[in-house]
Amino acid sequence: MPPTDTEKQMFEEVKQNWAAIVQRGASMGVGDHKKLTPPQAARAIVAAFARHLTRPGLSFPDVQQEVALLRTFWAVAADEVPAFTPAVCRSEALWAALPWVVRRVANEPSTAAREVAADVLMMYGRMMHPVVMDGVDTYADVFVHCWVAGGLFDMLEEHSMQIMDFTNGPMALTLIFNTINICIPYLSTETRAELRAQLPRTGMVWKILQAGIASGANEDMARYKANSSGFFMPKGVPDPRNPMWRQGAWEMLATLGHKMRPSEDCARRGCDKPAGGLWCSAGACTGTRYCSRACMKA
């Protein structure tokens, strides 16, 4: 979501006082020889956000403020503190905290709660530029591991229908799945195994697809062409409200599942056996095979 007036003011205050904030965060309080290096200070700040976001009894206004402050720090640090990006990428605690925040607010009826959840999802989406554009070979493995270990896929599946109703929800999903797709060639054997264990997500693919169909976004060729031609706003910026994101979300997730679990493998998530020729009997499962009847029924 675009920054609110409060966030803009917060941004200016943080930017003006950034040096003092980092110095305070970097100091251990017992002399200059105990000052942390910039990377250590960045890790300390990110760890503090993770702790604050998961404090027991945290009220919604507190969650809202913490997310706004995290967005502000991210915006300032992108220009001011190069060490902040790797600290975010490598923080298992932060990427475990963000799904918790979405679960905390996704079912709240207020518009403000939906906006907070959308802002958190765009934290994932915004990782495409610093990770994929600036250092995919450096960051891909560690941040995909953190996303998977932090429970990203389970959170998305639990709340996929709510997310598809967010203004930029389909865009966030598309960016998340596409970022992981781009990173696959750079993953270690261990991280590939972790990612594979989370896929396929056939149920989530169908939920996202059905949400797109229900919206009538691309129901005929004329509308599809109109949406395609209007995808970019002035200055080449993609329109977060464009219905093409709805198609992109399920296509990217389906592609991700196929890459990590091709058709010759058992289609049940968590099974690493080859498919044994047992075809799913459901009409919507064309081409889906399992290793055994037990996996097909699971």
Rank of each mutant, 00 (worst) to 15 (best):
T37V: 08
Q40C: 07
T6Q: 05
A26L: 08
A42W: 10
A41G: 05
T37G: 08
L36G: 09
P38Q: 11
L36H: 03
K35A: 13
K8F: 04
K8R: 13
V30D: 06
H33L: 10
K35E: 14
A19E: 14
V22S: 03
A20T: 08
P39N: 02
D32E: 14
A26N: 08
G31W: 03
V30P: 13
N17G: 08
T6V: 06
P38R: 07
P39Q: 01
I21G: 04
M28A: 14
L36P: 13
K8I: 02
T6Y: 04
A20H: 11
V30T: 12
H33A: 13
S27I: 01
A26R: 11
M10Q: 13
G31N: 03
T6M: 03
Q23G: 12
H33N: 10
A41C: 14
A41P: 06
A42M: 06
T37L: 15
K34C: 10
V22W: 03
A26V: 01
E7P: 00
E7G: 00
P39F: 02
R24V: 14
E12D: 05
V30L: 12
K15P: 00
K15C: 03
Q16V: 00
P39G: 01
A26T: 08
F11H: 11
A26G: 15
A41S: 13
M28W: 10
Q16H: 12
E12K: 07
T6E: 09
T6G: 02
P39R: 02
P39D: 03
K34S: 09
H33S: 13
Q9E: 08
G25H: 05
G31M: 05
W18C: 02
K8Q: 02
E12R: 02
V14T: 11
M28Q: 12
Q9K: 11
D32Y: 01
N17K: 06
E13P: 00
G29C: 05
K35W: 12
T37K: 15
K15A: 12
Q23F: 06
K35Q: 15
T6K: 10
A41H: 07
T4D: 01
